[in-house]
Design a protein around this nucleic acid. Structure first.
Lengths: 92, 92
DNA sequence: AGGATTTACGTGGGCCGTAATTATG
DNA sequence: CATAATTACGGCCCACGTAAATCCT
């Protein structure tokens, strides 16, 4: 599992489409598709239903989406908070 | 930033010592040291004070440690929750 | 001088992108 | 047959490990 995989998952979940998500991430489809497959493999369950028009979230995917967003938000918070603490006190 | 870097940071913070943390992570010192340096670079502030006996957390490091643990806990929760959802319902 | 971190440097594995393949309506 | 996802495959980059250097007490 990696933060990149999580970002990829969120993009595909929101676009419902690997191609569009890939453009949004400035990435080509194959690696993006592999990110999703790797996640599904690691989690031991499919996250999307593959249709001929794209990908739709399964229940497990909906659940993971909530967690995924929380993880990235937490990372963001960490960065911003630490930057503030780091540059706040005297900083010799 | 990567989950690996975060794990590395936590290990060094808890051991107060790159060498011991490296053994605990089954990794050699140089990459581990680079993980910390990369984090500090990305966050724009030092996280540890380097002493001749190891490394001690600075205030920014203490702050980051709280967030780091929350991030990994969130990842863990995501994995376990999704595994449950995935294997729960009918699973045709 | 001893114990620690950090830099140099060469190598191997992993990830990307192009191209080909498969699947589905 | 068109559109979407996936697999094959070649190449580059990044991260590791060994070894050397640096720093501090």
């Amino acid at each position: 599992m990696s933060l990149t995989h999580i970002q990829s998952f969120i993009a595909v979940a929101e676009e419902g489409h690997v191609g569009r998500a890939a453009r949004r991430l400035h990435l080509s489809q194959p690696p993006l598709s592999r990110h999703i497959l790797a996640l599904e493999d690691e989690l031991g369950t499919p996250l999307f239903e593959r249709t001929s028009r794209g990908m739709r979230l399964l229940p497990a995917g909906e659940t993971f989406l909530l967690h995924a967003r929380r993880i990235l938000a937490e990372v963001d918070a960490a960065v911003h908070t630490v930057r503030k603490v780091g540059t706040g006190p005297v900083e010799q």
